[in-house]
Design a protein around this nucleic acid. Structure first.
Lengths: 227, 227
DNA sequence: TCGAAAAGTCAACAGTGTGTCGATTTTTTA
DNA sequence: TAAAAAATCGACACACTGTTGACTTTTCGA
């Protein structure tokens, strides 16, 4: 799954039928992406340099401009690559499973994606805060996931009386809030020192949290006197 | 509340007794901060320049280095200033109010803070993604809010059987998740075009969401067959 | 399989912003 | 009011960016 032969972004000489041998340029493009992901282990995206990437790949700096307009362009492509991979996992979720299994599966897929491409998703958040245009791109990527889950919730809402996202502004809004909750929580977890156990705890907590967002609580909220 | 005479960050000649007349340097420092907040309306923090700030304030570029080590240092101070202001609102929350009012009040305070210092909090998120050290600083600021709410929830948990954060990993973790949910949701709202109505909707949705995180849902979750 | 078109490569240049130094002026304070 | 502290600035060295135009290699169809 790592080095496949399909190309995602708006590469030079991109759209070619799948399975065909890659052009030299396409191979190089992937090398650059790999080098970037590699370097992101050490430094923030802000600290990437065209120079550094060029050197890592073994071409001149100006050659790099042949492939990407800027280092942010590189980061964008990297994010797109990792997100697409994660979304494939979403598509593989069993559509007929009970809602809670569906949610647990989605959370698990998200977690594994983060684990695998930690540095890329950290960079995604970084990138998304730089320019409105970049924020929108990240928002769009998130939309794919939000939409996918929201569709399922809509169905569930119609079928299952114990599911009611109305107070959160509807299924869409509820899932939106939930997804950003997950994104941000993973971001905060993966951007600091932690162990595997904490990761599992976080997945469990987020799964429970997401469920709670969708089900009304057990008590009717009435004002209670203070002690 | 805007131009007070206390100074927050590690300014040159900071700690002076409150109420005293500011030194020239302290005034200038505030000017720089104000200029930065002003300029952030136009551009991302990444696009701030020492040059631009210096010019706006009317000093030479190198003079600016007298006050701040870098433009990120400026941003940090700005974030600290706005966060402190918001936290004061938290402290003013009526401690004896019912939980739901407490939460609604906290959400309202957060919302107003965002509304007032939108560009600063957007910059905070941007800044926090640049360097581990900056991420930690933002995390610490969030901790103040998380800790404040979590303390209240702990109490509530002990008193009120309908409050149970256990499945989310305890009060602390539940509030942590909730706060990041709020932070990210506001970030996403305020970083795009929207109207006042949508802001109110978001506040309502987040308030409802936060409550749901703390109360167990009404159905015991049992596997349901698919149709 | 050959040759033209397409793809890929690079050195050199011009530009923008950074951060530091030491010398100088202004403000503060005792 | 004069010494100390604070504030200011010009000039320098440097790191990274993005562009241009000439050159080399690869690709692909006749």
């Amino acid at each position: 799954m790592a080095d496949r032969e399909t190309v995602v972004g708006g590469a030079p000489s991109s759209r070619r039928r799948v399975g065909q041998k890659l052009r030299k340029g396409d191979r190089r493009r992937n090398e650059i992406l790999d080098a970037a992901e590699e370097q992101l282990r050490d430094r923030a995206a802000l600290d990437l340099t065209i120079d550094g990437l060029a050197e890592a790949v073994g071409v001149s700096r100006s050659s790099l401009y042949f492939y990407f307009d800027s280092k942010w362009d590189v980061v964008d492509a990297l994010v797109e690559r990792a997100s697409a991979e994660m979304f494939e996992q979403y598509l593989a979720l069993p559509a007929t499973a009970p809602l809670e299994d569906f949610l647990a599966g989605a959370l698990e897929a998200t977690y594994l994606g983060w684990k695998r491409h930690r540095v890329v998703f950290l960079a995604a958040a970084e990138r998304s805060s730089h320019a409105d245009e970049a924020t929108d791109r990240w928002r769009e990527i998130m939309e794919r996931f939000i939409g996918f889950i929201a569709d399922r919730i809509e169905v569930e809402f119609a079928l299952d009386p114990t599911v009611d996202p109305t107070p959160l502004g509807g299924a869409r809004r509820a899932v939106e809030i939930g997804c950003w909750m997950v994104e941000r929580s993973f971001y905060m977890l993966f951007s600091r020192e932690h162990d595997e156990a904490e990761e599992r705890e976080m997945v469990a907590a987020l799964t429970a949290a997401f469920e709670r967002l969708l089900h009304p609580d057990s008590v009717s909220r009435r004002p209670r006197p203070r002690t």
